[in-house]
Design a binder for these strands. Structure first.
Length: 237
DNA sequence: CCTGAGCCCTGGGGGC
DNA sequence: TGCCCCCAGGGCTCAG
């Protein structure tokens, strides 16, 4: 990878869902996924080496380095030849709700065709990308939908409203720099976001629902957690 | 097809 | 203090 990157020019940046890539010489891609704990940091060259620095990119036009830090190593970097427009390893990843070509009617129809639980579908990155565990819980809370409801049992307008809720909550989170619980979650300057203060369900087990006062419930789900209001978010309605 | 389980890792926090 | 267990913005593969 280092050999192929040597002398390459970064001519653009792109993203699809949770994947991001640097366009190299207009043709190739340096593809990255941050996993759970990855960070892309733009730093001064004399900035100290972090405990979990995995890669460092230096530039000939002076100024800053680009560093990839990752504590848990669930993140990864890949060089993809010819991947400038869409790297081949992520061809199966669906467009995210911020993509200008995101076809909401088509996504709604595809979700409607699934009989599994709606939260599982929201997290399926081949259907709609970019939604993770936090924003799935927040979108479900906002749209008053229980995550275990069969996707096929929801009406198309309700599914569409759920996607709108996911887009809205991610938009609001972006405006505040994201959801940071600790120093693992930072932007390229190492700054934490403030959206954790605005959460309505995620991580709030036992605390009163901000709509109805009923304590938020936490349940195990796919080796993770789901948080929801047992009154606002009905399994049947 | 769909689903759940397991796994890839490190580190922080709580209970004993 | 040490030890153990649980937990963490994710996603892949595999068996059934």
């Amino acid at each position: 990878m280092a050999a192929r990157l040597d002398g390459a020019a970064v001519t653009g940046t792109a993203r699809r869902g949770k994947y991001l890539w640097l366009v190299l010489d207009g043709e190739d891609a340096l593809l990255a996924h941050l996993g759970m704990s990855g960070q892309m940091l733009i730093t001064s060259p004399d900035f100290p080496v972090a405990a979990h620095e995995r890669a460092r990119f230096t530039f000939t036009d002076g100024g800053h380095d680009l560093r990839f830090d990752d504590q848990r190593t669930f993140g990864h970097l890949m060089y993809d030849e010819g991947g400038a427009v869409l790297p081949s390893p992520i061809a199966h990843i669906g467009r995210d709700p911020f993509d200008p070509l995101f076809d909401q009617a088509a996504v709604v129809a595809r979700i409607k065709s699934r009989r599994t639980g709606i939260k599982r579908v929201l997290l399926d990155q081949t259907v709609v990308s970019g939604i993770g565990n936090i924003y799935a819980d927040e979108a479900l809370w906002a749209a008053k939908v229980h995550g275990e409801v069969a996707a096929s049992s929801l009406s198309k307008p309700r599914i569409s409203a759920l996607i709108d809720a996911a887009r809205d909550v991610m938009d609001a989170a972006l405006a505040q720099g994201g959801t940071s619980f600790d120093s693992l979650y930072v932007d390229v300057a190492g700054t934490s976001g403030y959206f954790a203060r605005s959460l309505n369900a995620y991580g709030l087990a036992g605390q009163p629902c901000k709509r109805c006062g009923t304590p938020i419930v936490r349940e195990k789900f796919m080796n993770r957690s789901s948080h929801f209001c047992p009154v606002c978010q009905r399994k049947r309605y």
